[in-house]
């Protein structure tokens, strides 16, 4: 049983994570205090939801660098809707945010699967276009905390059953992750994504509707980023056109790839992506609670990621020794 666990792809990552948490706890015992655990938990939901969509795209051997801008545009539009129509139900707002994101993702999907544009080119273009539109729809004005409904902010403060840990946003992220896991395992679309990424030409020969399923991956990625836009408004209160989601794409891609999803498509697990997100969350929160001088933070961050990659790679090679011929 334990043996089997260690043969899993995620095992090395889990060990790295455990080692990292141990080191941080030795240096700062309060890292495991309830308040701080909440910090770690609250760091995750946005990243998890965006990373899961990004993972779907990467599985198909694509990439979506526009997720940060989709998060921004959908978050801004939804926040403006909530500001201008205070009677709007926030669950409807969540649907709206997801819908806007899915629509923006569908544009990406159309360009890529329909018109045959390379994924990075199409999404690099929409990265700029969606960010520009965020300024246009908002006239460059931010939506302030007092203009948003209180129960939206409460999503990031309170949890179900009167518990405050973990808050609703974390549950939302976990539900999305579970749904995504089921989707990847049992739906035709999910399995097709692996097939497309594994061997794009072969997949189409075996009757996989490559274009349609690729399109779906981008719609899903957009929908995830869209929902994350509303969660951003919940978590940070102010929605600013320049800062919302800016640079988020690199973070999401890092989480997916650290989580063991192959950047060349075809392989990857939800558990891995969750661990990748958790690793990034732990590193970021740890940098804030350890007394690391500001000037050292970026270097330490880069070094830890590089070390995680190397250790993960080395561990995997050892596990697969013999099974792999080079």
């Amino acid at each position: 049983m334990i043996n089997k666990l260690f043969q899993r792809r995620e095992a090395p990552l889990l060990i790295i994570l455990a080692a990292l948490v141990t080191i941080v706890c030795l240096l700062q015992p309060r890292f495991l205090s309830p308040g701080n655990l909440q910090s770690v938990l609250l760091w995750l939901p946005l990243l998890i939801i965006v990373a899961l969509g990004e993972m779907a795209v990467i599985l198909t051997r694509g990439i979506d660098v526009s997720v940060g801008s989709i998060l921004g545009l959908s978050g801004m539009m939804t926040a403006m809707a909530l500001r201008d129509y205070p009677e709007l139900n926030i669950y409807v707002a969540a649907l709206l945010a997801t819908g806007i994101g899915a629509f923006l993702g569908a544009i990406n999907g159309g360009l890529i699967a329909g018109a045959g544009t390379p994924p990075i080119v199409a999404t690099l273009a929409t990265l700029g276009i969606y960010r520009g539109l965020t300024f246009v729809v908002s006239s460059g004005k931010q939506v302030d905390d007092y203009q948003l409904p209180r129960n939206l902010a409460r999503w990031s403060i309170d949890g179900p059953f009167g518990l405050s840990i973990p808050p609703y946003v974390v549950w939302i992220a976990l539900i999305v992750a579970a749904a995504m896991h089921l989707f990847l395992t049992y739906s035709r679309t999910g399995r097709d994504w692996y097939a497309i990424g594994g061997e794009p030409d072969g997949a189409s020969d075996r009757g996989v509707p490559v274009r349609l399923q690729t399109f779906c991956a981008y719609v899903l990625s957009g929908a995830g980023a869209g929902l994350a836009g509303l969660l951003y408004a919940s978590r940070f209160g102010t929605v600013n056109p320049a800062s919302i989601g800016n640079g988020f794409e690199l973070l999401a891609i890092a989480a997916v790839v650290i989580g063991g999803t192959s950047i060349f498509g075809g392989s990857g697990t939800i558990a891995g992506v969750l661990l990748g997100c958790l690793l990034l969350g732990v590193i970021n929160v740890a940098l804030a609670v350890l007394n690391i001088a500001e000037t050292w933070q970026s270097a330490v961050y880069g070094a830890v990621i590089l070390m995680a990659l190397l250790t993960d790679d080395a561990a995997r090679r050892r596990l697969m020794k013999g099974a792999r011929h080079k």
Binding site: A299, G302, A303, L306, D313
Partner: peptide, 26 residues
């Protein structure tokens, strides 16, 4: 890292992007 360790260049350079910038900051 890319050639000898077979790590994807996207992730390697994403990490060294933070690392080198951080060393400049130090």
């Amino acid at each position: 890292f890319v050639a000898r360790r077979n790590l994807p260049s996207l992730v390697v350079t994403l990490a060294t992007m933070a690392l080198y910038r951080g060393m400049a900051q130090i």
